[in-house]
Design a protein around this nucleic acid. Structure first.
Lengths: 256, 256
DNA sequence: AGGCGCTTGTGAAGACGTGCACAAATCGCG
DNA sequence: CGCGATTTGTGCACGTCTTCACAAGCGCCT
């Protein structure tokens, strides 16, 4: 992500559609806000305060206000934010106005699950193609889509403009698939394979790894166990539970 | 995580097994190092330099050294790190020496895939139970395990000590399941449902959300498109590709 | 034994993210 | 019309994370 921005870049800045250059941490939270906003809209809310929205999204209210302030001033002091307007603005910034075509490579265990996931269509994405390297899987129909061979990628890419590639193959195949995706012009990859991908500059890769998440949890579990096993030396680590439950954030995410 | 550490806490410090109190960012990267180390070990490496390991894990070498220095000094200057020793130390810190029991709730599309995922057994975890609220799913056998009703959780927890709960239910059911998990003593939850969970203090929640990852990628895609549509005003955003490919990190995230 | 090249471990500086606390702005009511 | 209640937007301070650059340490070769 070597994206610099010169403080006072001259030229006709302002003619451009804003291009807000948001902090990465903010970008990572916007989808969460968006989901909370959709929930609120479905429940009939027309406006919402930063306090209310932040609670629904599980973050600090000051953080939420600062995040939203980066998109511009879409709130009204003393009132709150217009739900519909804010949804529109966030979708705008995230580029969800156009339905992006996703190519899913690897229709094994996980691939099947992803192909059946309705979160794709629900939020601005459309599975454009299912691909696999295993000839015995080619031709299979999943959720109305026929699995094609991964070597057909160029053909698929020619048929429609692929925006995002999802890799759900075994680790051994992932790098080769990534290369093929990059070769047909894909510049964003979501990698479910447990391995590091090498891609040229300008291509974004995000990784989702179940084992890593479990191991991080394991660490905290381990630490909690060590603490309770200890006599109460010093600070009250595990203080009495407060009356109400509080939404935790447990740092980002994924994220990284 | 409200974990303080008094600089010079007296008492019999040192009797305790170190309890390193690692930075969260470091913890999130350790599993990646661990995987890279296992790969190296399988390939016959006995030692590895920070440069080599960092390349395999897709991070900066200085970052890797600082991360490892938090665990103690397990490297040899002029030589590198002993692969086997480092694996042992990291597994130690992450608490992977004991095989932790995982309860998986929700055996729908995604739950099936997770139940069949071999990354569990591979790295210190064991699926102890499959649970679902749908009576028509109860009794089904997946991968050698029989699906039980989620209300049997207390019984399951009594049979063996559950360390981690994985929620793969629809969003509407997730909070209730989380409450049930917490009620039987689970203090670490991995949530695949697209919603925010409220849990008492002391319970860790990590979230994995496909739609969020896609939307983050969408943002970058959107931004790249805006940039290339622009004339070359100012900085060379998309510079010429360098000769070789470089491993990107794109933060974690999982977190990220 | 001594010197040389390589690699770790870390101090320091800077970038980034977070949260408090408050001024500015808006609405509703008397 | 003015006032108070409410809520946004943000300046500031603080903590965390990253990166550079280099001293300290280790092994090998002569």
């Amino acid at each position: 992500m070597s994206q610099h921005r010169h403080p006072g870049v001259p030229g006709r800045a302002g003619a451009v559609p804003a291009l807000p250059d948001l902090p990465e941490a903010t970008v990572a939270r916007l989808p969460e806000y968006l989901r909370a906003l959709h929930n609120l809209a479905d429940t009939g809310y027309e406006t919402v305060s930063s306090e209310g929205l932040s609670a629904a999204a599980g973050v600090n209210s000051a953080k939420l206000r600062k995040d939203l302030s980066h998109l511009g001033s879409y709130g009204t002091r003393g009132v709150g934010y217009d739900v519909a307007l804010l949804i529109e603005q966030i979708e705008n910034v995230l580029g969800l106005t156009q339905r992006r075509a996703v190519a899913l490579v690897g229709v094994g265990n996980l691939g099947h699950a992803l192909a059946g996931y309705d979160g794709f269509a629900g939020r601005g994405f459309r599975i454009a193609a299912l691909l696999d390297a295993d000839p015995s899987r080619v031709g299979e129909e999943i959720n109305g889509l026929v699995v094609r061979h991964v070597d057909d990628l160029p053909t698929v890419a020619a048929e429609e403009s692929l925006a995002i590639g999802v890799i759900a193959t075994p680790a051994a195949a992932a790098q080769q698939v990534a290369d093929q995706l990059v070769a047909v012009g894909v510049t964003s990859i979501l990698n479910f394979a447990p391995c590091v991908l090498s891609v040229p500059e300008g291509v974004d890769v995000r990784k989702v790894d179940l084992a890593i998440e479990l191991q991080i949890l394991s660490f905290h579990e381990h630490r909690k166990a060590s603490l309770t096993a200890l006599p109460a030396t010093g600070g009250s680590a595990l203080t009495a539970l407060p009356g109400g439950f509080a939404a935790t954030d447990t740092q980002e995410a994924i994220g990284t």
